[in-house]
């Protein structure tokens, strides 16, 4: 926009600068120093030894793989349930759609401490899930302090983000696209792969990134539902700092987490563009 009124670049810059400087000073600089620490060797100078040490330890490797696995699983599950749910919600009349939408985003507004705490009661050996299973004669299952518990907690925590992203993508989809494809004899699988998925990939990328990033960076859910037997990178980082004052490992974990988040975003973007080419 370069009309006479808005042409002045200095004004634009001076309005943007405070926010940018603030973010840089408060955020970029301290985080960058922290990350750079992991590249300093024991005798000073550039070194990757902190990284090789980290990955040489089988226990840390296990934590890394577990974090990646849970992140991927939560994202995939959220996407599958999210598509079904978003499709159901979009098919509602506008008035109830708004209400249900409000209920879906509601959990996002509630303290994660409260949200995670509830699962402690639900998933216990005498909790509501096991009591219900008991009615069918099923032996109590141990959920707490297992990956399953962390998975369930994370899924509930972040699924709303996926659903919201998919709903906004579906709302921009031409309303007759799905009925038209159905009329032409396409099966539901074909409709999903050829019509819905290509038209909603932007929402999937945003939702997927948010869910994956959220799962990786959640602290309280793995801390309470997983405990020290199901460490994730985030809980490991906190443990290294507070218990061992091991700032080198903390920096390594920090960079790994950030790279994983960016990586997920890139992968999802790539997947989305590939889909577009095949669809075209």
């Amino acid at each position: 926009m370069s009309s006479s009124v808005f042409g002045n670049r200095t004004t634009g810059l001076s309005l943007t600068l405070p926010a940018a400087l603030f973010a840089a000073a408060l955020f970029l600089v301290p985080v960058a120093i922290l990350l750079s620490e992991a590249f300093v060797g024991p005798e000073g100078g550039f070194s990757l030894s902190a990284y090789s040490d980290f990955f040489a330890d089988p226990r840390y490797r296990a934590v890394f793989w577990r974090t990646l696995k849970l992140g991927v699983l939560v994202t995939l599950t959220a996407a599958i349930i999210g598509y079904v749910a978003a499709f159901a919600i979009v098919s509602l009349p506008p008035k109830s759609r708004g209400r249900i939408f409000g209920l879906v985003i509601l959990p996002l507004m509630i303290s994660p401490v409260a949200r995670t705490y509830a699962w402690l009661v639900i998933l216990g050996r005498t909790g509501i899930v096991n009591e219900t299973l008991g009615l069918f004669g099923i032996e109590p299952i141990r959920f707490l302090f297992t990956e399953t518990a962390v998975f369930i907690g994370l899924l509930q925590l972040f699924m709303p983000l996926m659903i919201v992203s998919l709903i906004s993508a579906m709302e921009n989809m031409p309303s007759d696209a799905v009925p038209a494809a159905r009329l032409l004899g396409a099966s539901w699988v074909q409709v999903f792969l050829r019509v819905i998925l290509p038209l909603t990939r932007e929402g999937l990328v945003i939702g997927g990134t948010l869910v994956f990033t959220g799962s990786l960076t959640a602290y309280i859910t793995p801390a309470i539902l997983g405990g020290s037997k199901v460490l994730m990178l985030e809980t490991l980082l906190y443990q290294r700092v507070t218990v061992a004052r091991d700032f080198a490992s903390a920096s390594v974990i920090a960079l790994i987490l950030i790279l994983m988040c960016f990586g997920a975003n890139l992968v999802l973007r790539r997947l989305a563009t590939v889909k577009r080419r095949t669809a075209a």
Binding site: A23, V31, E234
Partner: peptide
């Protein structure tokens, strides 16, 4: 990008970085 970075960087890292370097 700069302004939205706090969403991507895990909070625990931000907390630790600010404690140590601010």
């Amino acid at each position: 990008l700069l302004v939205s970075a706090p969403i991507i960087v895990p909070g625990i890292i931000v907390g630790l970085a600010l404690l140590r370097y601010l």
